[in-house]
Every structure is written in structure tokens, then in C-alpha cells.
Nucleic acid binder design. Structure first.
Lengths: 336, 336
DNA sequence: CTGATGATTGGGAGCGCTCCCAGTTTCGCT
DNA sequence: AGCGAAACTGGGAGCGCTCCCAATCATCAG
């Protein structure tokens, strides 16, 4: 009844109630050794009775560990909800972070201001480590990452650099599988709708396409680049149709672009998969909703988040884990 | 060259270098009064020279303010990426939080374990306040919210309770607009595809539908409930067609369900909007991609996040802001 | 020139927890 | 019983910052 402005109990109060020293109580809290059984139990009882919860902040100050990790998503905010990609990464990361008893701090690093805040967060030791996603070429967030002493795990590799720790998806392999699948279906004039070439993802997928074509003794055609939106897929497809009227296979660097490539093809009177077979990448929901449904390369997005968080967790724990490349696999549907 | 294991400078060092006391330096830091101009400048110089950044944790301990707010998303994780809803909320909240110089802690409260961690985070004063989204009836997360002394802002209202602070969207008004629009288009047998009735959102949208019908002197028909997925929209539509073969208008509680209702209608040989007019809700991307494109009610999702964060910011600052209901508006496309 | 008034100043006590360390007990053996 | 080792114990010094407060300084009217 008199608990309105009641202060939260401190460790000292727990200790007093249990009749031990603060040190002993602390040991129980962190279940460290060197506490006699009866005292340990007394402390535990006191904790329960007082409904004690240790103050994170005080603990953080003493241990120099914040108990939190930042997930930084670079690039313009709109892109974060263009597709469910980031949401899935977040779900995966969140789950793994929970495992390591870390909290998730989400930082959208789109503006200069937000990058400055991020830099301060890191310098002020507001988190124990960083996961970095969607970094583009010359992304200013790279400087922030370079300056910090905290462990940084990249999601996907930035263009032109191999960061010490990263988790990536096997984009090259996936793209090769996709292309090989088209070739296996008897396609010879296979074109590619690529993403923006200033991203590692796009480059890797393009490389996979080239490798597969060359390996099959076919001539890789110069790709047409979109920007991962549906509209850009339509535009690229139209261009490719004009350039290679005899094309019989299309590999698009993501499902969004593939979806509208599909429409464009139908609009141009090409039957899919009769005249032209199409493969996408990502396996987003849209892939099942296109007409015909889309053969695509599934990438383990949630796993990507999970593994980033695990890697970071180990790094924070002082272990020496190594980077990871996650496998992709082809999901065959009606468009091939 | 010798800066490898360099400790971060502390306020004491800044003070010493500037030839003032720690207190004075602190005052400069928080630009409090009672510091002579020259000393203030000396401190600022020292800060610059030492590249000093105050330690958040220490400050948090002393001030009892964490500088962070939690955004809690309840419910199963999969739903977080079912549509871009949450991503938009996050973008809005993140921007407004930045304004208030607060960091964003994202908590997915799906499992018991995560709820327990959340409860601890709050009790351990790991954040200064909470935003709570997607709460369902009898959601266990409500207990966590009830127990904390921290300010809590709801996004949408939970069923059967009016929390002290919330930001909601005018679901009733939006649904009424949608229904009135159908009626204005001459429809008389207007049915509704509803969402799960254990959510406030669904109830409110249903209420708007009823109000509009009754106001127009028409008979509200019992709704068919889906679960906001496309598939459930198709199922519900089929059921409604069977029950009311003469229906000429459909109001769906979200765009996903509307999208597949559209397909079902076409599959059943009904022309849209010729025979049947359809209105959705949300104005997701899908609304522009359906055939025909979907008339729908746009809700300001990003604003929802922004206003939640602002409200919370004021609450944390000790002000006494009041709750908010954001307007919705009809976006007319080809389905009506 | 003096006391009063108000602006500065810096010492010191926390905030709540961890951890080192010296001192005390408890044991297991011979 | 005697001894050294191993297991406990609690005092105290931080972690880096804020903020109260008594003390010092400047300034100015009388």
C-alpha cells in the first residue's frame, strides 16, 4: 500500500537483508564461486523477496560492457521498407542477440546527423559491438566503422574491401545456379537484369551469371541494370528485348525486377516459360504471386541476421570466430 | 603512433588540461550557467583537443536517464515482415527519436523469454520509456507494460482499454469513408471482409463500415473475417459470394485481403468495378499493382511512428502531452 | 572604503555495481 | 594435534559523471 514512490532496492539492501557483504551478494548475482551454499541461498531469497533487479547502468559502468549491440542500416530510409529484407534480418538478429543476452539498438544511418549520432554512440561506448548492413561504395558510414575500436560485423561485403568479419550470402553461387538452371532448360540466349553495379551484391550476382555462361560455352551478354524496383525491371526487360529479340532466358538480380520483367515479356507477346524462361533472386513473397509463379534463388535472410548476431556475440565475448558465407538454393516454380 | 591502447579521455583530464575543476567542465558540457567565458572556452578547446566524448554510461548512472527508448513489437515475429507496416513505423519513430536525442532499442516481444527480458530491461532502467505496438487482446505484454513505472505510449489502442497515452489512426473514420465512397458509387449490397475481431483495428474498421451503412439507410451485412493475409482474403470473398450472390460492393479491412478478393471476384466472372466495386485499407504498395488498381484508405504509418516517438519524448521530458488520432484519407483508383 | 548581493568555483559525496586483495575459515593429511 | 592449502569473506577503491553546497570573487550602492 505504501509502495508508490518506493525506491528500487540496491545490491546493498539485498546484502544486508541476507546478512552478507555486498561483495558476496555480487558473487551470487554473477554466480561466481567462493560463496558458501547457505549464504548463496540467503542472497537468492533476499533477491526474490525484495524483487531485486540489478541496475544495468551501474553494472555497465563497472564492467565496461553495455549489454547491447547496434544494428546499423545504411542508406536511405525508404529502402528499408521497399521489401521485407531488413525486417527478416532484424528478426534473425534479434533472436540470436537474445541468446547472447544482448539488447538490440537499431540505427538508421541515412543522414549526416544520424551518422554523427552513431559515431558518438560508438565512441561513448553506448554499445558493445556493431552489425552493419547495406553499405554502399564510398558509404560515409564506413568511416564511422573504421574509427571505432568496437567489433564490427558486416552483413554482406562492401565493394572493394574484405572486412575482418562479415556474414554474406553466396551471391555468386546462387547466380550461377540460376543461370545453369536456365541453361539446363535448354536456353542459349540468356540475358541478365542486374542491380546497381556499385553494390557488391549486384557485382557478385553478375559474376555468377558470367561464370555459368562461360562454363557452358555460351557468350555472356552485357547486363542491363535496374535498381531492384519493379519498375526498373520492366524498363530493363524492354531494353533487352529490343537489343536481343531472340533471347530465350532471363536472370534477374532480384524478384521485384523479375516480376515486372515477366509482365513486360507477356506484354510483348512472349510466353513464359514457353518462349522465355525467367529466374529471379531472393524468393520474396512476390515470387509466388506472379503469373506464372517465379523460379528464384532463395537466400537465407533471417539466417543472415542470426549469424551476424552470433558472430558479433562471439567477438564481444572475446572469441575469435571467422566470417561466414551462407548458401543459397534454387526454388523451381513455373517460370522455367 | 603510440595511440594503440590509449584510454579514452575522461572529464577529469579535460578539466585538468583546461585548468579548471571537473565541476566546471561538467557545466560546460551541459551548458549550464556559472562558468566564466574564458574558462568555458578553455574547456571547449580541451574537449576538442582531447577529442573527448562523455561516457554515456557514467552519465546515465549519475542522471538516471538512459537516453534511449524501447520500441516493442508484440506478436509473432513472422507478422513483422508480412507487410512493410512495422518498417515504416520504425523509420518514423527513429527520425523523431533522433530529434529528442534518444536512441532506439528494438524489442520483439514474441516469446515468453523475450517478454521476460523486456520486463527486466524496464525494471533495470535500461531505457527511459516505451512504445508499444501490435498489442492484441489479453496480450501478456500488457502485464509488462502495467508493471513498469516508465512512460508507455501505445501505437493503436488495445482492445477494451484506453491507455493513458496512445497514438492511433482513425480507423473508424477511414472505414466509414471507404464505405461511403462505395455507397456514393451507387452500391447497395456492400459486404465487408474483416480482420480478426480480437484486434481493436478490425473492430474499429468494422464499426466504421456499420456506421456508414446505417447512416445511408442500408443494412450492414455480417462481415467475413480473415487474418490480413492474401489467402484469407480469397477465402472470405468466396464465402461472401456464396452468401450474397448479389453483392455489388466490397470493403476489405486491408489491401492484402482486398488484392486476393479482387482475383476471386474475377475468377467468379464478376467485373471490377463494373459488377462489384472494391475498396481496401492501408495503401500498401500492392494496391497499385493489383488489376485493376485498388481504391483504398491510406493511413499515415510513418507519422504514427513519428508521433509515438514525439509523445514519448515529451513524456520523458516531463511534459504532459495528450494522445493523438491521426487522420486517414481515401485514395481513389480503378477498383471503384 | 565597506558590507551586501550575486556570480563563480571546486571539493566531495554520491549513482549502484564489480573486483582486487588481505585477512579469516575450513579442510585434508600426516 | 599441527600445518599448509584451498575456500570463503568483506572492506575499499574504483568506473566517469552529476550536483549540492560551502567558500571565494566581483561588483556596486551607500
Amino acid at each position: 500500500m505504501t509502495d508508490a514512490p518506493r525506491r528500487r532496492p540496491t545490491l546493498d539492501e539485498v546484502a544486508e537483508r541476507a546478512g552478507v557483504s555486498r561483495s558476496a551478494a555480487s558473487r551470487v548475482l554473477n554466480n561466481a564461486p567462493h560463496v558458501r551454499r547457505d549464504k548463496r541461498e540467503a542472497v537468492q531469497r533476499a533477491i526474490r523477496e525484495l524483487d531485486y533487479v540489478p541496475d544495468t547502468t551501474a553494472r555497465a559502468l563497472a564492467t565496461r560492457q553495455r549489454g547491447a549491440a547496434a544494428l546499423v542500416i545504411s542508406g536511405e530510409s525508404p529502402s528499408i521498407f521497399a521489401d521485407p529484407f531488413f525486417a527478416r534480418v532484424i528478426v534473425g538478429a534479434s533472436a540470436a542477440l537474445e541468446e547472447a543476452d544482448l539488447h538490440l539498438m537499431l540505427c538508421l544511418a541515412a543522414s549526416d546527423r544520424s551518422r554523427r549520432r552513431l559515431a558518438e554512440l560508438l565512441r561513448a561506448r553506448g554499445v558493445d559491438g556493431v552489425m552493419l548492413m547495406a553499405v554502399r561504395e564510398n558509404d560515409p558510414v564506413l568511416r564511422v566503422a573504421a574509427e571505432t575500436e568496437l567489433p564490427v560485423v558486416f552483413g554482406g561485403r562492401p565493394v572493394g574491401a574484405e572486412p575482418p568479419w562479415y556474414v554474406d550470402v553466396d551471391n555468386v553461387g546462387g547466380a550461377r545456379q540460376a543461370t545453369e538452371h536456365l541453361i539446363a532448360r535448354g536456353r542459349r540466349r540468356v540475358v541478365m537484369i542486374c542491380g546497381p553495379l556499385d553494390t557488391q551484391v549486384s557485382r557478385a550476382r553478375h559474376r555468377g551469371y558470367r561464370e555459368a555462361m562461360i562454363l557452358a560455352g555460351l557468350e555472356p551478354l552485357p547486363p542491363e541494370c535496374g535498381n531492384f524496383t519493379q519498375l526498373s525491371g520492366a524498363v530493363a526487360m524492354a531494353e533487352l528485348l529490343e537489343r536481343h529479340p531472340d533471347l530465350d532466358g532471363v536472370f534477374a538480380a532480384n524478384d521485384n525486377m523479375a516480376a515486372d520483367a515477366l509482365r513486360t515479356l507477356r506484354g510483348a507477346g512472349r510466353a513464359v516459360p514457353g518462349d522465355v524462361a525467367v529466374v529471379g533472386f531472393d524468393d520474396l513473397d512476390v515470387a509466388e504471386l506472379t503469373e506464372p509463379s517465379l523460379t528464384t534463388v532463395r537466400q537465407p535472410i533471417q539466417d543472415l541476421g542470426r549469424e551476424m548476431a552470433r558472430l558479433l556475440g562471439r567477438l564481444i565475448a572475446g572469441e575469435e570466430p571467422s566470417s561466414l558465407i551462407l548458401p543459397t538454393h534454387l526454388v523451381t516454380r513455373s517460370s522455367t
